[in-house]
Every structure is written in C-alpha cells, then in structure tokens.
C-alpha cells in the first residue's frame, strides 16, 4: 500500500547483460521519475535522520562522550539504513559489486558473520574472566593496606 508520492532521482533499472563496469557506471546514471514511498520507508528515514542529527549535535557540542569515531559509525549505520530503505535495489547492486550475488556466496558470507560473532562473544567472555582475575589479584594485594587502615 502506497501512501505518498514524491519526485526523486532514481537510477535506470539493472540490465542482466551489463558487465560489472557498465553496471557500476549505471549507478551514476539518473533520470527523474516519480517515486512512491511506503510508510515504513518514511519511518526509517525519519528515525535515521533523527539519530544522525542527535549524534551530530552531541559531537559538535562535545556532549555524551560522543567522539568522531562514534559519530562516524553512527553516520555509516543509520545513513546506510536510510539509503537502503529509500533505494531497496541498492543492496542487490552492492551484492553484485562485491560478488556475493549467488546463493552459495551468500551462505558463506552468513557463515563468516556467524563465526565472527562467535569469536566476538568468546573474546568478551575471556575479557570478563580476565577482569575478574585482576579484581581478585588486586583485592589480595590491597588486603594488607586495608588491615593497616582499619587498625588506625
């Protein structure tokens, strides 16, 4: 169900017989056609805009521990989400461009992401245990000082 109709730029449709280079250049070729927006697209773009605006304000006012690194991550994640919401075919073009168009490639890609997540989870667990060991080691080292200050 389409709620709104706005004019915006849209790329020419992909043609299957395009070479990778031609496809890449086709991304740059635009013409003016009417484009209708679904409700979810407006919500996502609005939300992304708000998140980027909030991060930008925090960064320029130096508030909330916002650093350039955090702001750039926010810009990439929310900006990317908004771009894909507005131009859903962008993900297909991106998949073609980086070569994960086929099913097998997609499965391998998902596998990589899963392995990465598992490693990240494992490293987090190791980190937590390391922190506990440090805490215990510190408590033991400070034991003598604690007793000394209590006696005083």
């Amino acid at each position: 169900m389409r709620y709104f109709s706005v004019h915006t730029v849209q790329k020419v449709p992909n043609q299957l017989n395009y070479s990778t280079n031609e496809r890449f250049y086709s991304l740059l070729t635009v013409n003016r056609t009417p484009m209708s927006l679904h409700f979810y697209q407006i919500i996502i773009v609005g939300l992304a805009g708000f998140m980027i605006w909030q991060g930008g304000v925090q960064y320029f006012r130096q508030e909330g521990g916002q650093t350039f690194f955090k702001f750039s991550i926010r810009l990439i994640v929310w900006g990317g989400l908004a771009a894909i919401a507005l131009f859903p075919t962008l993900s297909n073009d991106l998949a073609t461009l980086i070569g994960i168009e086929g099913n097998i490639n997609a499965v391998i890609m998902v596998g990589f992401i899963l392995v990465f997540l598992m490693i990240f989870k494992l490293l987090s667990a190791i980190e937590r245990v390391e922190r506990q060991i440090t805490s215990l080691t510190r408590r033991e080292a400070l034991d003598g000082i604690d007793k000394k200050t209590t006696q005083q």
Binding site: I133, T134, T137, R138, A141, L142, G144, I145, T149
Partner: peptide, 24 residues
C-alpha cells in the same frame, strides 16, 4: 611494596597502586 600474585599488566598494577594510595 604490594604484590600481585599474577602478572596482570601495567594498567592493572597502576590502578592497584592508586587504590592503595587512596586508602592511605
């Protein structure tokens, strides 16, 4: 002198020293 039973790194040792100094 304070002693860490295990080697925990420069940061951990510095923090232990700062905690001890605060107690003292």
């Amino acid at each position: 002198a304070l002693r860490h039973r295990l080697n925990r790194g420069k940061g951990a040792a510095t923090k232990t020293g700062i905690e001890a100094a605060k107690l003292l």
